[in-house]
Design a binder for these strands. Structure first.
Lengths: 251, 251
DNA sequence: CGTATAGGTTGACGTCGCGTCAAGGTCAAC
DNA sequence: GTTGACCTTGACGCGACGTCAACCTATACG
């Protein structure tokens, strides 16, 4: 009924070295030890091993696993604590990825920055100088880090959403509806939500402030490069007016 | 002109132990060593140290830094290689975070799974049983992991995009345009792209297969819960027909 | 019975970038 | 001479094992 160390290792996809390691830590003692020193494991030990490997697969350390399995700690609580560590690590990684990307670009082209990489989206931070002038260098850097921290798929998705928003604005403007109509206000609401996903805004809670939101509309009208995203000057004026109404009513 | 090891350490914000470590690795030998064994550093050494710390801050290992600083490796190339490692690590972390979240939920509520958390989006994997039955439990688990790996902002964004797509389908269906019209086919293309962002599809390259895409349309019609996303039975039929035309032409 | 082969055992080093003692020498000031 | 700040080398610890090394045991086969 009992299995040798190799049998167990193969059964669960690990190595005998690992099992010996767990034995020495007191994490998984063999159910029986032969007079020759051989380790043998029964079904209970196998169950315990499975649990160990599951928790280890989630990234928990062996001491933490020991606590949980010995009922000295609550599994859910331990996992939540662990989850927080994982999230922190993930954010640290994202920042590092952003820094590395930035450094590569600087090494290669000298200031060939975000703008060129995302010409078809992200319009309010599209041009480094403008953004820095209006909202400060830190806001630009934050946005740049955010953008670089995203995966390719996420960027594609974001750009698609941005393009869609621009197209819908353009279509609405061409239909000649009023800026305070329900349809236009729904677009303004989407615009607001779209902005809310972008860090680096001059606001603490991740959502654009009223001033910023209104100012953005003015910028769209004032700058043809931005206006182009909304079907030209006329479209940009429509967007500006709709955003203004939205801001007055809801912000 | 030369500085003692403590002076240097304080100057750049590190410790004397670290400087001794770098010395022993041959990464940063002191510019001068007194007869008493004391280490002294000149300005060149300081510059080199700054570079070391910069690269270390980006996550590079000391051997890699050694190569770069000794001109045995190209900085940009080394960083790109490093960047790839970072991205892999980040994805691994995302998966782990998803798994941990899932485990916590299972421990706490027993099967309060994704479905409840995202009632307003993600329709084709909205119901665990249906999905498992049609595409296998693994596909469901993959989708669930993907969903849990996203940040709150990403989820919001995804749901908004999903809702928008549904609304646009509904509007198109109500206008009574033909399923093979340009407008409908543009919607079908968006639908296809929207699906492409979702892992766990029965396809290797991350894009839905033709069969899956067409089958999805049938499912929308067959199941009122799905049809509701597209303006009811009529709308779902319109979607199904448009997807079919798209699949025949493009997949 | 000898032997080839496939197991098993303990012990110890290496990983990565230092932090942290430990034990002791050096220097400037009082 | 003493104090206190600073310097040196050497060695352990961290985390979860991988990877030898050296040696013992079980089983099958001729």
């Amino acid at each position: 009924m009992d299995r040798s160390i190799q049998d167990v290792a193969r059964l669960v996809g690990t190595t005998s070295r690992t099992l010996r390691h767990y034995d020495r830590l007191g994490l998984l003692p063999p159910s029986r030890v032969g007079s020759n020193g051989y380790r043998y494991y029964d079904d209970d030990a196998l169950v315990r091993l499975q649990r160990i490997l599951l928790l280890r697969g989630l990234g928990l350390g062996l001491p933490a696993i020991t606590e949980v399995l010995n009922r000295e700690a609550e599994p859910a609580r331990a996992l939540r604590k662990h989850l927080e560590l994982l999230r922190q690590e993930q954010e640290r990684l994202a920042r590092q990825i952003a820094s590395v990307s930035l450094t590569i670009d600087q090494l290669e082209g000298g200031e060939q920055l975000m703008a060129e990489n995302m010409f078809d989206g992200f319009d309010h931070t599209r041009y480094k100088d403008e953004v820095e002038e209006r909202w400060g260098a830190e806001a630009y850097a934050t946005g740049d880090r955010w953008w670089r921290g995203m995966s390719e798929a996420e960027r594609t998705q974001y750009k698609a959403r941005t393009a869609q928003l621009g197209a819908d604005w353009t279509a609405a403007a061409e239909q000649g509806i009023a800026p305070d109509s329900d349809a236009a206000q729904e677009l303004a609401r989407r615009h607001f939500e779209w902005l809310s996903g972008v860090p680096g805004l001059p606001s603490s809670d991740g959502r654009p402030s009223k001033e910023y939101f209104v100012g953005l509309g003015d910028m769209y009208v004032a700058d043809d490069r931005f206006a182009a995203n909304y079907g030209g000057r006329k479209g940009a004026e429509f967007v500006r007016d709709a955003l203004k109404v939205f801001a007055d009513r809801r912000l």
